[in-house]
């Protein structure tokens, strides 16, 4: 059963770039094995919020968080948390496909091999399984040793998904995973996301509202009300409710296309 157990708790979360506060006072519960979409106008901090969960924001200098992000009961911003271990459990798909300039095979085994040794046979089955789960196996099984950069954009993005599935994460973060792709590739990615929710908790950032409506069960709407002010969580509810009967006037204005 999906949606019963709370996987991630966000409590009074805020985020600063240097002295500038970009996210403020966000609290929400994200359920296990559901797809949660984060929507909002450009520049409202959706991606920043997403990168909170695997602590990728830390790669930038002078950033600071406040509040708690609790995954499976553990505050991931505690000092004793191993970020490397955290990122193994929480995979990420980026806006632009970013396979390594290596072969398809090497791309998929990159993650698993970081963490332990495998026999050639084990690696072979990891590659096959991961590519199958990413719905890419049939297209590439005869050319696993070609350079990943020779694939189309949509295939590259599915390869990136296969690459992260190979590490067996529990949570998958997706940062506008289809925004750089054509409609038919987008369709394939969306189908894939829908299949993945059986086994993974997925958080997807999108500024495409149709996409949010199509793929997600929950929607969080972030908004910066005035420039210079941090973004806040305006509304968080079932996707159906948000798109048919939003509880907040600003949500309604946004989803009907009055701004953003």
């Amino acid at each position: 059963m999906s949606g019963d157990k709370i996987k991630i708790k966000v409590r009074n979360y805020g985020f600063y770039y240097g002295a500038v506060k970009v996210l403020s006072d966000i609290s929400m519960d994200i359920q296990e094995n559901t797809i949660t979409a984060i929507i909002g106008p450009s520049g409202c901090g959706k991606s920043t919020f997403l990168r909170t969960f695997n602590r990728m924001n830390e790669l930038l200098p002078n950033t600071r968080v406040e509040g708690d992000i609790i995954i499976d009961g553990i505050d991931i911003y505690k000092d004793n948390i191993d970020v490397v271990d955290l990122r193994k459990r929480i995979g990420m798909v980026f806006q632009r496909p970013n396979p390594f300039p290596k072969t398809i095979y090497e791309n998929v085994i990159y993650g698993p091999r970081l963490h332990r040794k495998y026999t050639k046979k084990q690696l072979g089955s990891i590659v096959e399984n991961s590519l199958k789960r990413a719905a890419l196996w049939d297209e590439v099984k005869h050319k696993l040793n070609t350079n990943a950069l020779d694939l189309s954009g949509g295939q590259q993005q599915r390869l990136c998904i296969a690459r992260l599935l190979a590490v067996n994460p529990e949570i998958i973060l997706m940062d506008e995973p289809a925004s750089a792709l054509d409609p038919s590739s987008t369709q394939k990615i969306e189908d894939l996301i829908d299949e993945l929710k059986e086994n993974y908790t997925i958080i997807i950032v999108t500024h495409n509202m149709q996409q949010a409506a199509r793929v997600s069960q929950k929607v969080a709407f972030l908004l910066t009300e005035n420039i210079c002010e941090p973004a806040t969580l305006v509304e968080y509810d079932d996707t159906n409710k948000i798109f048919t009967n939003p509880g907040d006037k600003r949500t309604e204005d946004y989803i009907t296309g009055r701004f953003g």
């Binding site: 990122r87 980026f94 993650g111």
Partner: peptide, 27 residues
Amino acid sequence: VPDSYRHASLALGATKWQTITKVILPQ
């Protein structure tokens, strides 16, 4: 070497040193 490679590697749970030796230096 584009940052996207660094991010991809780190997001898969690679340490910084693994990222450097396996992705960045070969590039």
